[in-house]
């Protein structure tokens, strides 16, 4: 994997809106943004109602993913260009999710919805009609998905990267600062985790930092490239952003996203929790 395989620029996207076998997909938790105006021709995916199982806390299963993509008019041969709000959090999550189910031709629009809007590029309210396909997914590739036991076993042996804000990491806050603090589980972080907030990987306009900047960032924060890595946040979307930076942009080989993240770990009985600012590389 490398940057040109995984990312497209807004300029490229604008010139390829009508390219054959190319489907633009906006992914958000709140799809009112899409309804108010989206990249011309883009279809929408609702992170909450379409990508999550509506009963169990898990993804839709393979058959559910096949049904979803077929209904959206996305075929196995299509290249999917994902973008969204929140600095591409949910788009990065969807990217990881598409890879999980074996769709290789998937790319992220650098800067997502924010850059597109700030650039003053065209938005459209027309909802495209795409004909139904017969999509076939693969079995989940769990080499990129971490589960809780694996995370507990990774304490002190693998790189654990907590990508939440410092106040969430230390246990001061249970959710990002733009949300009501209604969570009931314990605060803190997984012992031995490094705190490298996802936002350090992004520029102000939502684009990813350069490979050199990213490499320097994770090196300085104490990430050991010779070890496997598990990234987590609160519900697994911000950590998808970091998973993307490490695995897709920098080409680190064994990187998993722990989608259970803090909402699962911080509610488990009997696991160790650390509070406070924790450790950081570079001796600080």
């Amino acid at each position: 994997m490398s940057r040109q395989d995984a990312l497209v620029s807004a300029d490229w996207a604008e010139q390829n809106l009508d390219a054959p076998n190319t489907v633009f997909v906006e992914v958000d938790e709140d799809t009112t943004a899409y309804d108010g105006g989206h990249i011309p021709g883009a279809v929408k995916l609702d992170w909450k109602t379409e990508l999550q199982d509506q009963v169990r806390r898990d993804f839709v299963d393979k058959a559910g993913f096949e049904k979803l993509l077929s209904a959206k008019g996305i075929g196995n041969d299509d290249t999917v260009i994902l973008y969204g709000g929140n600095n591409n959090w949910f788009a990065a999550y969807a990217y990881w999710y598409f890879k999980l189910y074996g769709h290789q031709a998937v790319k992220l629009l650098d800067g997502g919805r924010k850059k597109w809007e700030l650039d003053g590029r065209k938005l459209d309210t027309e909802v495209p009609q795409r004909s139904q396909t017969s999509y076939t997914a693969k079995e989940q590739d769990t080499s990129i998905r971490a589960f809780r036991d694996e995370v507990v076993n990774a304490i002190g042996t693998k790189n654990l990267v907590d990508v939440r804000s410092p106040d969430e990491f230390s246990g001061k806050l249970l959710a990002p600062a733009h949300l009501p603090q209604e969570q009931a589980q314990r605060g803190g972080h997984i012992p031995s985790a490094l705190n490298v907030p996802w936002s350090k990987a992004a520029n102000e306009d939502g684009t990813f930092k350069s490979d050199d900047e990213l490499r320097k960032l994770y090196e300085e924060q104490g990430l050991d490239s010779s070890r496997s890595t598990i990234a987590y946040c609160r519900i697994g979307e911000r950590s998808s952003h970091t998973w993307f930076a490490l695995h897709e942009l920098l080409g680190e080989s064994d990187v998993k996203n722990y989608d259970g993240s803090w909402t699962e770990y911080g509610s488990l009985i009997g696991v160790p929790i650390e509070t406070g600012p924790g450790q950081s590389g570079s001796g600080s």
Partner: peptide
């Protein structure tokens, strides 16, 4: 959830 809720002048209930 991590998505930013709609911004309003009124504070959310609770």
């Amino acid at each position: 959830m991590c998505g930013a809720p709609e911004q309003t002048a009124e504070l959310p209930a609770g």
